[in-house]
């Protein structure tokens, strides 16, 4: 009787110890049961699905499956095969017409004069600007600043050594949309290409948002006509700026 109870005691404590060592921590993923249910044999993005009972050769073989791959040149994203009529003669869609050279940069700046994304009504413009703002704040604001003044947090903290472009400066105000689009596609100076981060439409949404910020800064209204490229904000904006200056001066006096 005594001996049996001692044996019972030992087995139970052994079981407790066994399961106590299952929990994941630090470098240990924890234990699992029936790994075939949990691990994908098929290729999964960003995941090394190799596990102990995998039948797919060595770990090195397996890791070849999980490397990032570049799509074939000219690949069109899923759901992007149909081209809207408004984009038929667009220089930026489905393929960007310019290469990453200084010559093409000036060409793009001259030839792409208006935003390819033309909102149909005020509600759509509001949507575009809202989405553009979200994207701008994710992808641009760390350097170019939330206000577009080239004073983003990274530069302000002194972490980033190069001064980012100030979209509120005269040269950016008067420049064509092509300059922005080309810079997003291929980068400029130390800025690298952000084409992989933003799709065609998203790039234009961001440019819409930058333009609206410029308009707001100079006191102009980013109207539907302006966003469709039917009315330029440039000369008006400059006049408005001068008026503002005069007002300020008067106030100062």
């Amino acid at each position: 009787m005594k001996r049996r109870s001692i044996i019972n005691l030992l087995t139970i404590s052994a079981l407790v110890l066994l399961f106590a060592a299952c929990q994941s921590k630090d470098n240990f993923t924890g234990r699992e049961y029936m790994p075939d249910m949990a691990h994908s044999i098929a290729y999964e993005a960003n995941q090394n699905t190799y596990y102990m009972f995998n039948h797919w050769g060595t770990k090195d073989d397996y890791q070849k499956f999980v490397q990032p791959r570049t799509p074939q040149d000219g690949t069109v994203a899923y759901g992007r095969t149909k081209i809207a009529d408004s984009l038929k003669n667009d220089l930026t869609y489905p393929r960007y017409a310019f290469a990453n050279t200084d010559e093409d940069r000036t060409k793009a700046t001259e030839m792409i004069t208006s935003n390819a994304l033309k909102p149909k009504n005020a509600a759509e413009l509001e949507n575009v600007l809202g989405h553009g703002k979200e994207l701008y704040e994710i992808y641009c604001s760390s350097c170019h600043g939330k206000a577009g003044d080239g004073n983003g947090k990274l530069y302000e903290l002194g972490v980033y050594p190069a001064a980012p472009a100030n979209f509120m400066s005269d040269q950016f105000l008067s420049s064509n949309d092509g300059r922005y689009y080309h810079a997003i596609m291929y980068g400029k100076n130390v800025m690298l290409a952000h084409a992989d981060k933003l799709s065609h439409d998203e790039r234009w949404k961001v440019i819409h948002y930058i333009r609206s910020m410029q308009a707001a800064k100079s006191g102009a209204d980013y109207s539907l006509e302006a966003s469709r490229g039917e009315k330029s904000i440039k000369p008006e904006a400059k006049k408005e700026e001068k008026k503002d200056d005069k007002k300020d001066e008067k106030k100062g006096k």
Partner: peptide, 27 residues
Amino acid sequence: IFALVIVGGYTTVNNAIGLGRQQNYAP
């Protein structure tokens, strides 16, 4: 033995539920 069954059962069930979960995993 009674205490062990209670405590052991509790941890066993808890850990068995935790099988395949990776909370606190910090590689």
